[in-house]
Design a binder for these strands. Sequence first.
DNA 1: CATGAATGAGGGTTCATTCAT
DNA 2: AATGAATGAACCCTCATTCAT
Lengths: 200, 200, 200, 200
Amino acid sequence: MRAAPMAPDDRRAQLLGAARAVFARRGYHAAGVADIIAEAGVARGTFYNYFPSKRAVFAAVLDAVMAELDRAVRPIDVAEPIGPQVRDNFLRVVRALTDPEVTRLLFAEAHGLDAEADEALRAFYEGAVARVSRALHTGRALGIVRDGDLDLTARCLLGMVKEPAIEAALAGESLDAARLVDEILRILTEGMLRLDPRAS
Amino acid sequence: MRAAPMAPDDRRAQLLGAARAVFARRGYHAAGVADIIAEAGVARGTFYNYFPSKRAVFAAVLDAVMAELDRAVRPIDVAEPIGPQVRDNFLRVVRALTDPEVTRLLFAEAHGLDAEADEALRAFYEGAVARVSRALHTGRALGIVRDGDLDLTARCLLGMVKEPAIEAALAGESLDAARLVDEILRILTEGMLRLDPRAS
Amino acid sequence: MRAAPMAPDDRRAQLLGAARAVFARRGYHAAGVADIIAEAGVARGTFYNYFPSKRAVFAAVLDAVMAELDRAVRPIDVAEPIGPQVRDNFLRVVRALTDPEVTRLLFAEAHGLDAEADEALRAFYEGAVARVSRALHTGRALGIVRDGDLDLTARCLLGMVKEPAIEAALAGESLDAARLVDEILRILTEGMLRLDPRAS
Amino acid sequence: MRAAPMAPDDRRAQLLGAARAVFARRGYHAAGVADIIAEAGVARGTFYNYFPSKRAVFAAVLDAVMAELDRAVRPIDVAEPIGPQVRDNFLRVVRALTDPEVTRLLFAEAHGLDAEADEALRAFYEGAVARVSRALHTGRALGIVRDGDLDLTARCLLGMVKEPAIEAALAGESLDAARLVDEILRILTEGMLRLDPRAS
DNA sequence: CATGAATGAGGGTTCATTCAT
DNA sequence: AATGAATGAACCCTCATTCAT
């Protein structure tokens, strides 16, 4: 049975979506082009009319996911109250990571694929760190952020967000984004340890 | 050239070591049994005398690495000063994660292999979370840890440690463990954000 | 962009020309229908409106080339001086073979394609041999050609012409047709070896 | 059914032979690795234990055939009578070319495969031309060979030998080597044309 | 115990051809 | 008449695993 012809952009988008679902479900290596075309209801050759290789669709999927995540972060307007804006950014990122597809693709499948994928991922991550780091420097100038090794701090921040999201996604549990964000914000604002509570 | 016979345990250990090095260097999928036996200087058949499959060696390697990491955490003696003990635990964990082999194996290669590997990893991780969580509950009872969702907090803590370690390992950079630990401890004790600096 | 409709014969000729260029440039197997339609600036389906298969265009191209070569040979008029007519025939053939397209198509690509192509080629070649052979018999009757196995001689003659032409074409060198023809004629008239120079 | 293990050199030779037969019979493109392993009675993987690719076996086959042909030509000892040595060389070459496998492989399949194969072939052919050309120069010094463009002459000579051999092989006819050589030698020593038989 | 030749299922990719528009 | 998206059979190659020596 021959699938009805389709505008190339649409077909491409459809294949991209199918690939995204399949890669998220089975992982890069376990997924075959056969799975993707089955998901899309399309013949083998059709796939290769739109992507030159399995590796290439994966790259495209990864790009889409990274862009999605990227869009979750909005610049902060210092003329407005800062707190809610920060909280909203956290919230949007966590919500994006709440999609198990996003998380699996970014964190479970993409590492160690090949030099190129690793590089794309590292570039994305470096960008994220740089972005957070810049925000922290701005915050310090505004007196909002305490001094310290802000690059390292940025990485820690990302870890606090990523880790719970990943684990929830991989475990198949759902994650209460607001709760996580509030917990993180509390740690960031108040700390959570009193190692030497000798202070009267 | 026929390798000298060897005590089975030694041969097994040798193969395990070779596999660990190879998996860390090339990743699970890129590594072939051929690489492992080349590294070990042993024939193909010999490998299968000690491990039933490639998958199985990887599981064994993973077990070894997880055990190693596990040993980095020591129970806390409440009769002694807490602070240094906590710091030392952090330090030992970060140092263990400083070994790029450990990090690559645990975080870059192990995810998404198959259901069984995912399960082993998740079990390990759940154990870690549980352990930290228990420590936090104890700490709360002692008045050292502030109240809150301690499970979530445990995950955030792990993220703060893992993330910088992973990134350093994957980027091939070295990581100053003491510096990272101190930064983390400062965040945990003092926080780092003053979102509403209304405080006169 | 839709190409303007065209008289069928013209379109066919255009496609034939494109195919000839492409086959000569890339060889039968390396050339794709995609190359041909790109060369012709025409859509895929259009191609199949004029030729039933890739194999078929190649056959048509081959026919055209063989006909071209065939036209290079003119019957000899015994009422006129023979020498110049022979020389002119040689010259026209060599000049035709000087076109690298012709040579590549006939000698480098056409062999071993499939039974049918081989047959067409062999038929063409047999025709050529027969033609030369007939000329030699006539020559013998006229006392111009020495006796011998004239069929074999005809094949040798063809080889003397083909070989240098092919090699020049494949090597991308140009060939001095007149020089080759003169050399061949000298060999044919005078020989070139004196194996037993005992002749006092 | 598992083929009995075999000394690697033997298996390689067997595969080479099978490949040679298959390539000669079906041509490079029509022949599949499947045909070769069927001919050899061996599994797919075995083939790739000995040759890295289909292309590579073909190269090996070609090398073998070229070497075989090369061995047919023996240096001429000027202290001995020249004539018979020359004749024997011709004879051995023609006999080698009498094997249809050799001829098909060298002349029908090898051209136009890819740049590398073309180069190997051209190098072989250039070598042959150079060899013949050198012999002719020597012969001229000895007064055996008449003056002229000896490079071109060398090419013509090769053509006289190749052409009848190829055609016989492709047509499936057998060729009387001695007869061909004698005919060629007669042409070379006496010529065969008397274009201006004015000589009373 | 050790060896290494043999295996073959599995997967990615190509490209001549078809047919709905 | 022209188009170009869709097709799928065919093919090359990989590599974990087996087993006879």
